[in-house]
Design a protein around this nucleic acid. Structure first.
Length: 425
RNA sequence: GGAGAGGUAGCGAAGUCCGGCCGUAACGCGCUCGACUCGAAAUCGAGUUAUGGGAAACCAUACGUGGGUUCGAAUCCCACCCUCUCCGCCA
């Protein structure tokens, strides 16, 4: 959420930022609401001031045994007015809050302007595309043939966009998860967390999934609870309504969790394979940073995600999302895209964002600066480190051999019980 | 699921039965500043919620959340949420 006062005082800046993002929201709608709110507020507050002082007088008269019925009757009218005005005010405030909470974050100045994903500039590469003396196959062929992945039975158990992993496939998923968590916690200083996989509405509001993106979520029947679409939600909300100490910043958490997404609106996309599933595993990183350090932290965190790919020897590139392609709460986002030879494409495997104070304001996460009395909002960051299912795909497609086997990257072998090659047996 | 207790500032806690200078919220702890001291401890003094409106004086709001009763609600009524204790059930 943007700061109310900032919006009031910088309507043009907000208008421009919305245009850059390609949003259709109208700032005039907000400024009209806000001036009506202020007028009403002043009226109702002065009536309340009158009521407060008069009820003191009534108490005094009654204590002295006098007759207050005249004043009481008059105050009855005042109270009626207050009630009516309060209701009007509440309606306006609700409308205003709805408007504000549906406004996306403002892109940082360093974010390139653009309309779609085609406008995202590539800022760096690592490694090279592997060369094959045969035509590399897609993972949904190869992994199924090797018996590690079973889409058909998953469809029986649940439906489309689910998968059963078995044998080496189950082990590889678990190995990747452990490897990622170990690197992030032991080498990069993240604190390991296992959060709830089901959260309430307040949490989803705090990170920005609600109220706008409800249709992307799985909701529990008869409960106001939702399956998490990403561990960003529970991790960021760990400190909701808290005041952190300045010395503790940056706080860095890392959690391996399943993620659940309805994928509404992506019906035709990636229907085959592991790329787009309703349930997938992800190792998520979340940081709570000092406002002066958050962009530094973003670079660091992106590096932490890249490190996983480097150690696995997977070629990737990093892009900056342009203004039109950024997520709702982000001020700046880097996507890491891994090379998938079977599909002959780069695919997103991590997304690292600095949300600055946008989520902190929604979730009320502050810190107490040492040199001032005034509490300030922290900056929150989140990034995948990495999406496990897509890393699975990358390993399978990049390390495939002409004979249909898959060589396990060295960094992963300790997690695979020393196994070096996955074969059909 | 059953029974009971509770939710008030950074923390603890009084106030709730019996509605009215009790929310800049008693009292205690913590924290900040000052005095004393070579320095510290101890002691003494002062200060210490947030948000909103207003140029300012000042005003309004908030006692878990949401309703209701009343001229007036921390206090009375209703619903819900959360925490703790005991019992039951369960991986």
């Amino acid at each position: 959420m943007l700061d109310l006062k900032f919006v009031q005082n910088n309507l043009d800046v907000v208008r421009e930022s919305l245009e850059k993002r390609g949003s259709k929201l109208d700032v005039n709608e907000f400024s009209d609401l806000d001036s009506r709110r202020k007028a009403l507020l002043q009226e109702v507050e002065s009536l309340k001031a009158e009521r407060n002082s008069t009820s003191g007088e009534i108490a005094k008269i009654k204590r002295e045994g006098g007759d207050a019925s005249g004043i009481i009757a008059r105050m009855g009218e005042v109270s009626g007015k207050i009630k009516a005005l309060d209701e009007d005010l509440k309606d306006i405030e609700t409308a205003e809050r709805e408007w504000l909470s549906s406004v996306p974050n403002m892109p940082d100045e360093s974010v390139p302007f653009g309309k779609t994903e085609d406008d995202n500039p590539v800022i760096r590469h690592w490694g090279e595309k592997p060369e094959f003396d045969f035509t590399p196959r897609e993972h949904w062929d190869l992994a199924v043939e090797l018996g590690g992945v079973d889409f058909e039975r998953a469809a029986k158990l649940t439906g489309a966009r689910f998968v059963v992993l078995k044998k080496w496939g189950a082990r590889l998923e678990r190995a990747l998860t452990s490897f990622m968590v170990d690197v992030q916690t032991m080498d990069h200083g993240y604190t390991e967390i296992i959060p709830p996989y089901i959260v309430n509405r307040d949490s989803l509001f705090g990170t920005g999934q609600l109220p706008k993106f409800e249709e992307d979520l799985f909701k529990l029947n008869n409960w106001e609870y939702y399956m998490i679409p990403t561990a960003e939600v529970p991790l960021t909300n760990l400190h909701r309504d808290e005041v952190l100490s300045e010395d503790d910043l940056s706080i860095a958490y890392c959690a391996p969790t399943p993620c659940f997404r309805s994928e509404a609106g992506s019906y035709g996309k990636d229907t085959k394979g592991l790329i787009r599933q309703h349930q997938f595993h992800k190792v998520e990183m979340v940081r709570f940073a000092h406002p002066d350090k958050s962009f530094e932290d973003l670079e660091k965190m992106t590096g932490h995600a890249e490190e996983i790919l480097k150690r696995l020897g997977l070629h990737y590139r990093v892009i900056t999302l342009c203004t039109g392609d950024m997520g709702f709460g982000s001020a700046k986002t880097y996507d890491i895209e891994v090379w998938l030879p079977g599909q002959d494409k780069y695919r997103e495997i991590s997304s690292c964002s600095n949300c600055v104070d946008f989520q902190a304001r929604r979730a009320n996460i502050k810190f107490q600066p040492k040199d001032s009395k005034k509490k300030q909002f922290v900056h929150t960051l989140n990034g995948s480190g990495l999406a496990v299912g897509r890393t699975f795909v990358a390993v399978v497609e990049n390390y495939q051999q002409a004979d249909g086997s898959i060589v396990i990257p060295e960094a992963l072998r300790p997690y695979m019980g020393g196994l070096e090659v996955i074969t059909a047996d």
